[in-house]
């Protein structure tokens, strides 16, 4: 187990380095240099700025500096568009908003998927199963921005029709957090529901459930003490990638609902070609996702006793 953990951790670190390197060189392939968007820049200012951002040095030195700054000092530099703001500050200010949204969405997606998938499997080939499978494939196939804009439109029209004043953007109230979180989690929930359903179906037809029935356990006892746990295991393995999907999905949701999260900020930075912010956010998100997947894997190792010896 210990060896396995160390191996996974080592692999994770290499992956983060790989992500950072890929990010760095991708950003340096950009045609022109980051300062070319500046209007009316004198050669002197330009020189000064270049020195300030370190882009006058050779590429590999820049790369070394970037690695050192990022991983030893944890310093992601200053924003290009907003010279006085550190990228670290931007992340510190906006990531918690995204994290809250993401956590809500993940909670909504997994709990919903487990319940929904279980119902679909239990009523296999009956009406609840058919309707939920239709809904699942619909939720998987309709882009989240459609749901998000649709929900917003609905709220606006509802407000107009009833004279209510439901919030449809921002993060001021509980409603304005729950709706984006649900929409953000919808696709993931549908996907997980599918996995839960087929995994529960597999468990239901397995030999050990037959043994449990032969022991005289009631369907309820079988479900809670045998089926549920085994069926949820495959769902848990997907939670790592699901978090990644939800994190990137939040770019759109935050933009549409004007939630001041890191996702919205990232999209803005991309649109403004704010390279340090793009680079910093990518490295941050990348590392975050790698660590999340790692954490989920470790947790999974504790939940499924078989893992500990296998690896």
């Amino acid at each position: 187990m210990k060896k396995y953990l160390l191996k996974r951790l080592w692999h994770g670190i290499i992956t983060i380095l790989f992500i950072s390197t890929a990010t760095f060189f991708a950003m340096h392939m950009v045609p022109g240099d980051p300062l070319s968007s500046e209007k009316a820049i004198t050669p002197e200012t330009r020189k000064a700025l270049e020195a300030e951002y370190g882009i006058d040095k050779p590429l590999f030195i820049q790369y070394g500096i970037f690695l050192k700054k990022t991983f030893i000092h944890g310093d992601l530099g200053f924003s290009y568009t907003n010279r006085n703001t550190k990228v670290n500050e931007i992340i510190a200010n906006h990531f918690p908003v995204s994290a809250k949204l993401g956590l809500l969405a993940i909670f909504f997606a997994t709990s919903g998927a487990i319940m929904w998938g279980a119902i679909a499997a239990k009523y296999r080939n009956k009406l609840p199963d058919y309707t939920s499978m239709v809904l699942v494939i619909l939720f998987i196939s309709v882009p989240s921005f459609v749901f998000a804009s649709g929900a917003q439109l609905l709220i606006v029209k509802l407000n107009a029709a009833t004279g209510w004043n439901l919030p449809y953007r921002g993060t001021d109230s509980f409603v304005s957090q729950i709706v984006p979180a649900m929409i953000l989690g919808l696709g993931t929930m549908a996907f997980l529901t599918r996995i839960m359903r087929s995994s529960l179906l597999e468990v239901i037809h397995s030999d050990y459930i037959r043994t449990a029935r032969a022991k005289g356990l009631s369907p309820k006892q079988i479900f809670f003490s045998h089926e549920l746990r085994n069926a949820v295991l495959p769902v848990i393995t997907i939670i790592g990638p699901a978090i990644a999907a939800i994190t990137t999905g939040s770019f759109v949701i935050e933009t549409i609902f004007t939630i001041p999260g890191l996702g919205k900020f990232f999209v803005q930075a991309v649109q403004q070609n704010d390279y340090t912010v793009i680079m910093g956010t990518t490295v941050f998100y990348g590392s975050f996702l790698v660590l999340t997947v790692l954490a989920v894997d470790i947790v999974y190792g504790f939940i499924d006793p078989r893992i500990q010896v296998e690896k």
Binding site: S206, D207, Y208, R210, T211, A212, R213, A214, K215, G216, L217, S225, H226, R229, N230, L233, D304, P305, R306
Partner: peptide, 29 residues
């Protein structure tokens, strides 16, 4: 089932719940 008539199956590897301790599985009935 399990008290008056009991049954054992062909493949013991797949006939026991892989994520439950042996003791718990015997104790259940």
């Amino acid at each position: 089932r399990g008290s008056q008539i009991a049954m054992i199956f062909q493949d013991p590897m797949s006939s026991l719940n892989p994520t439950k301790k042996i003791g718990d599985q015997i104790a259940e009935s």
